[in-house]
């Protein structure tokens, strides 16, 4: 590695390989940059904006910005964490995130990120949108009340499974949603399978295997044990 290929992340010198994004380099060195739509397996999506950092004084998404030698990156400053918390609050008011009744609770990236950023309330007025649940598939339940529009299922289905079961379509707060590749719009009418990568990629509680709810007792779930900032890994769930 060329030793000049380093940048500063909250004052710490981080080496990187040319072509890596800021978040990739940080993750490789075990440093947590809060994020939701980014996943180490896939090309950056850049939609959640939780991974926003300040590079040489300007805001940018650490998942889409290439690491460059000598850049000065701010990550866990109170200014950035305040913005991230506000973005999380936006997620919590635009969807229906009722953790007590969600099978994903304790294993959910949205929830764990909100804990890490000390989000104690949704702050804004709740939207309580009317969103669909699709229970048509024999093995999988889709609960779009919890969708954060990260598109990871779209990418996984396309790139790993080669199926294109999902697509992100529509516009704006009310229109934007996952479209399912069948005329009925139902998952049962696609070739989606429990073994698909897309079936296990959802960071929140939208895509859930049926008959497996609440299998791990409270206290032993992923983020019960350790907070998300201490579980930085390039390995993927």
């Amino acid at each position: 590695m060329n030793e000049t290929n380093t940048f500063l992340l909250d004052g710490e010198e981080i080496p990187f390989t040319p072509g890596q994004s800021i978040i990739q380099a940080a993750t490789e060195h075990g440093i947590y940059i809060p994020h939701l739509c980014w996943h180490p397996e896939f090309k950056a999506h850049g939609s959640c904006k939780i991974c926003t950092v300040k590079v040489n004084g300007r805001f940018g998404s650490s998942c889409t910005m290439a690491a460059q030698a000598g850049m000065n990156v701010e990550n866990r400053t109170s200014e950035l964490d305040d913005k991230r918390r506000t973005l999380l609050q936006m997620y919590f008011v635009e969807g229906n995130h009722f953790c007590p009744s969600c099978e994903k609770s304790g294993n959910c990236s949205l929830q764990a990120t909100a804990y890490e950023l000390k989000m104690v309330s949704p702050h804004f007025d709740m939207f309580y949108p009317d969103r669909a649940v699709d229970a048509s598939h024999p093995d999988i339940l889709l609960d779009f009340n919890r969708c954060i529009m990260c598109s990871l299922c779209v990418t996984a289905s396309r790139e790993v499974d080669g199926k294109n079961v999902f697509s992100m379509g529509g516009r704006g707060l009310l229109g934007r949603r996952i479209h399912i590749s069948s005329e009925s719009g139902k998952l049962a009418d696609t070739d989606f399978a429990l073994t698909d990568r897309a079936a296990s990629i959802c960071p929140v509680g939208v895509i859930l295997p049926k008959r497996k709810g609440f299998a791990v007792p409270i206290g032993e779930r992923k983020y019960d044990k350790l907070p998300i900032n201490l579980q930085v890994s390039e390995e993927t769930p």
Partner: peptide, 15 residues
Amino acid sequence: GACAINGGLPAQRNH
């Protein structure tokens, strides 16, 4: 608690 903060279970009637 959840109900004071985001409506919680009673808010399930909101749709």
